[in-house]
Design a binder for these strands. Structure first.
Lengths: 340, 340
DNA sequence: TTGTATGCGTTATCAT
DNA sequence: ATGATAACGCATACAA
């Protein structure tokens, strides 16, 4: 109940029909210039705000996009949202933002709500960690336009914008191998059912296999995307007998690396002398750490921009083709890997 | 065009009226148990999703609230949004998030769009930097429910949740005066027309006057909320003749302080020996800086939670009273002030 | 150029 | 318990 003024009210005020008012305000042809002026003036005077809800009901279009992110405090996602906004702002879409907090149940609830709101499309970075695609199959089958970003769910017949995670992960691992001659390298992983979790892990494996280095089971620790997970995973590695300890650790992302660093420090060990470590994300904090973190910079803003563009095209273009877009990362070499 | 199934379709399928279907699905009385079961089963089978747009049109309620923030990359706001979401998630409101990027023109555009979407209310942290309140007067007069947070616009007859900026600013300044015996203290300010900018500056002035210390004009530098502004402002201070240089600097927020620190480092000076500095916000980076930053912790999550609660009460309660809520901050003493 | 009728999907109201 | 009708605010299609 913001503005109770409707087309009808303006029409009555001026003794014309609602249609004339509608035409005048929407700049449609076949309206007398004088009438038009009067209408516009009166609308302004009466404080008229068009009712988008009613418009949507008629046009079956809400000019609205839903955005579902798994984590709002992780700096990557706000930056993606900025990229999305650059696009939506120019093309007059409003965004519904929902944060799933890494919980698939909340994600599902959010998507349902967005469907009920009849958003024109949804941008999703999924928190899903199980191999059951029925939920998104159903959503997509129902005709909802979807574009995934960063954490993609594949083979759903919809577009996706992500970072070349696997290759980047290989590159940063190879840096440890070729530049620093490390052989005993551990990996702190994210959930394997989230695409970035899987891809980054596979990139690590690629590098290790290429250089025929051992992939010891005890050096592959299941962690997660957040600091605590990295901390806990590192504790596990540090609990190994000293001679079995890895020389270097590759982590699934920077928050995880930061948690691991905390564990290393608490143990009284130093980086990179005792254990080298690298991250993934280029978190805002990476450069400021006591030992600046070597990591992979992800162009978050660009991911958001591309995903939004693709979604809007998908919305406005009947048969916009499915596309898998990858944006390129950049290795950020700092000191935590052993470089100076 | 997500789900084309309507009440009518289900009704036809079952040979009943749309009303019966509506009643059944909404758990209303006066529906035969058997019919109800059938309806629910059929709705599920056909993939029915209620059309919230149509519901909104008839009920004049969208179950939607708009959130307008000035800056999404500044960590404070995502944390506020998390607090807001905790509340909206429980009470089944969806949020429309818009980021004004510190531009009042974008903020106005966003508010207009939210009004057109007929959101039930709006949470705003304003980017406005001019003393012209006509915009919000009009918005509020039109009946739109508004609650301001963090950056409040006062005397508009609406509720506001903020941090006790002025007192906190006095406290951190007094820490420099009483604990460290600084007398030559400079201030890098934010825009004076934004409430937090003004209040924090006034808190600084309060402390200086209380201890009868000089408020030299050249030591009050107009900066801004972002790093570059802090950097530029510090450059100005560093350009002063050495004997006129301040011993300590109070800044309007952490990003600003971080920019200033950069300028100090580039000049080859050290913190806190040559110049002590304090911030405001407790940015995620504050603790990780080479010289950890003394600052004021703002309970962002709590600000969001309270603001959302108040707005929802305002929406659902005809005459919910206007309220000015302040949440308490906490001094975070680290090393940049001279403490060890 | 302007107006009337109709429908978007849902629910309130008043029948039956 | 169920149904018919009207209404929410707007725009399309057609008529005047």
């Amino acid at each position: 109940m913001s503005s109770d003024v409707t087309l009808k009210h303006i029409a009555e005020e001026l003794g014309v029909s609602a249609m004339t008012v509608s035409r005048a305000l929407n700049d449609r042809p076949n309206v007398d210039e004088k009438t038009k002026e009067k209408v516009i003036e009166t609308a302004k005077r009466m404080g008229y705000t068009p009712n988008q809800v009613a418009k949507s009901l008629v046009s079956n279009k809400t000019h609205t996009i839903g955005v579902v992110i798994p984590e709002i405090t992780h700096a990557f996602f706000p930056e993606v949202v900025r990229g999305i906004e650059e696009v939506t702002n120019d093309s007059d879409y409003q965004i519904f933002l929902t944060n799933a907090n890494e919980q698939f149940s909340r994600e599902k609830k959010a998507v349902r709500a967005l469907q009920a709101q009849r958003v024109d499309g949804i941008l999703i970075s999924s928190s899903q960690t199980v191999d059951d695609f029925s939920f998104y199959k159903e959503i997509i089958n129902s005709g909802t336009r979807v574009v995934f970003f960063d954490r993609c769910i594949e083979n759903m017949g919809v577009s996706c914008v992500s970072v070349n995670d696997r290759v980047s992960s290989t590159e940063i691992t190879e840096h440890l191998i070729t530049e620093h001659k490390f052989k005993k390298i551990a990996y702190i992983s994210g959930p394997q059912d989230v695409s970035v979790g899987h891809d980054r892990y596979m990139g690590f494996v690629d590098a290790m296999e290429k250089h025929t280095l051992p992939l010891k089971e005890k050096w592959i620790v299941r962690g997660g995307f957040q600091e605590e997970a990295g901390y806990d995973a590192m504790q596990e590695l540090l609990a190994l007998p000293v001679e079995e300890r890895p020389e270097a650790v590759v982590t699934v992302n920077d928050p995880s690396a930061i948690g691991a660093i905390q564990a290393i420090s608490e143990k009284g060990l130093s980086i990179p002398e005792d254990i080298a470590i690298v991250g993934f994300t280029d978190d805002i904090r990476a450069e400021l750490l006591k030992v600046p973190l070597t990591t992979v910079r992800q162009p978050a803003y660009e991911v958001g921009r591309l995903a939004a563009l693709k979604l809007i095209q998908t919305i406005e273009n009947k048969d916009e083709p499915e596309e898998i877009l990858e944006v390129q990362t950049e290795l950020k070499i700092r000191s935590s890997c052993g470089c100076s």
